[in-house]
Amino acid sequence: MTRFAKLTGVVLLALLLAVAGAPIGQSAMKISTPEALIGRNSPIFNMKTVDGKQYGLRDEPGYVYVLEFWTISCASCKAVPPVFQQIHTEYAAKGVRAVGVNIADTPAAIKRNVQTGGYTFDQVADQSGTVTNLFKIYATPTIIVIDRKGVVRDVMIGLGVNWSTRLTNLVATLVAEQ
């Protein structure tokens, strides 16, 4: 019986701690997701690729941006670069900027990683989290598509079914838009 009472006490204590901590936790977590950006104007970003190119949302003429937020250690992110490379080869001349935004690793590690894969689309090292925080990225991989007017048209957190056809179809549509 005392054993039971003790157990109940401990469970109550744990519950109390959890409940007391929850509001602090909730406010600190700021449950925000990049999906909320769909259909809205993209946050204004400026970023420098690992090769030193400067890209910004306001660049003229309007570009279609396809961003992938990734890290080297993220296994499911590895499926994205082949598709991005294809988009890059097909549409770079038509004003599409496919960019890998690495949110964790050093420029040297990123360069090595993309070289092994043979990818030539641009990479940004966002170790400081500037771009990542703008878009409220909380998970990898996340893909964000922005049209020529600067409106976020699609956000994919993780790779759902048919993500690559959904992405390439959308890019094809956005290229045609002026």
Partner: peptide, 19 residues
């Protein structure tokens, strides 16, 4: 510590078993 922070800041979906 920078590497640890950069890795811990966001969640890796495949590592969590969601993907």
């Amino acid at each position: 510590y920078g590497v640890i922070l950069a890795n811990a800041r966001t969640i890796c979906l495949s590592c969590m078993g969601i993907q």
